[in-house]
């Protein structure tokens, strides 16, 4: 039996109405989520880590073949430049050997001096090696997802480093995945020392490849090519991790190019660093 046409019109009107209110509800939810995110609540973080945790195994499985393909492309490219590369490396090796002997001398001298001063050594740090399993959305946030989480000993605030230097800090931790906020992210703030004069400054990201120094504290401006290392202030990060090098200085800003190139990251180390005797009357 066919329903009368009036009934059909009524049903379709009702359906359109339901669809419209659903749409409005969803728009409001999106705004609600953005507001909640701004308030930085634990609920949002819990939800994010829950989803990240459940997708992590899939991403991990996918990232391996992707890395293999990328390696293959890189190897082929490197093969072409092998001869030049070899010559360059030989030169660099000579130079590094000289530095090595200088470093060994300095190390023994440093040990003797520390001994004289009864220097309290920095705590030993433990590293957790993790793979980068997701890297996207860089127009809005500079962050990475790692395949290590709370069950591997990762916790919030830990420093993440790769061969060349500091990558960023752990901001969200799930059971088996963790999110790292890169030093180039617009919300990243890292206390640093600049150059041999150890000028104090704050390294701020700008969501670009390079970062900037603010609150420069000390005599004069840093020079081009000066090294930037973590200062360890605020106790969040171990001191002395290489961060980058000053590449431009003008009246308004000092630009730092990080040692770590985002696209080259495959494995990183999460550093478990705890200040000695924190909370037990340490200075």
């Amino acid at each position: 039996m066919k329903p009368p046409s009036g009934q059909i019109t009524r049903i379709s009107t009702l359906r359109a109405l339901a669809q419209r209110s659903m749409f409005i509800l969803l728009v409001l939810s999106a705004f609600g989520l953005m507001l909640l995110g701004k308030a930085d609540t634990v609920v949002i973080e819990r939800a994010r880590t829950l989803v990240a945790d459940s997708v992590a195994p899939v991403l991990e499985a996918l990232s391996r073949p992707a890395a293999t393909v990328a390696d293959f492309v890189r190897n082929t490219r490197e093969l072409v430049e092998l001869r030049e590369e070899n010559a360059r490396l030989r030169q660099e090796n000579d130079r590094l050997l000289k530095w090595q002997s200088a470093a060994l001398n300095l190390e023994s001298e440093n040990d003797r001096l520390k001994d004289l001063l009864r220097f309290r050594p920095d705590p030993g740090t433990r590293g957790i090696t993790a793979r980068v399993i997701a890297d996207s959305g860089a127009a809005y946030v500079h962050s990475l997802l790692l395949n290590a989480g709370a069950s591997d000993g990762v916790s919030k605030g830990q420093a993440v480093v790769a061969g060349g230097g500091l990558v960023g800090r752990v901001t969200e931790v799930g059971r088996r995945a963790a999110r790292v906020l890169l030093i180039t992210d617009i919300n990243s703030r890292i206390p640093v020392f600049v150059g041999d004069r150890r000028l104090r400054a704050m390294l701020v990201g700008e969501n670009r490849d390079r970062a900037r120094l603010i609150y420069l504290n000390g005599p004069g401006q840093p020079g081009l090519g000066e090294r930037v290392v973590t200062s360890g202030h605020a106790g969040a990060l171990p001191p002395g991790i290489p961060v980058g090098v000053v590449t431009a200085v003008d009246e308004k800003s000092v630009v730092v190019e990080p040692y770590v190139q985002r696209h080259r990251l495959e494995y990183v180390r999460v550093i478990d660093y705890r200040l000695p005797g924190l909370g037990t009357g340490a200075p």
Binding site: L33, M34, I44, A134, L145
Partner: peptide, 12 residues
């Protein structure tokens, strides 16, 4: 959620 972008921005 997966890219770490502000929650709700992509959804909207």
């Amino acid at each position: 959620i997966l890219s770490g972008a502000p929650l709700g921005s992509g959804a909207l």
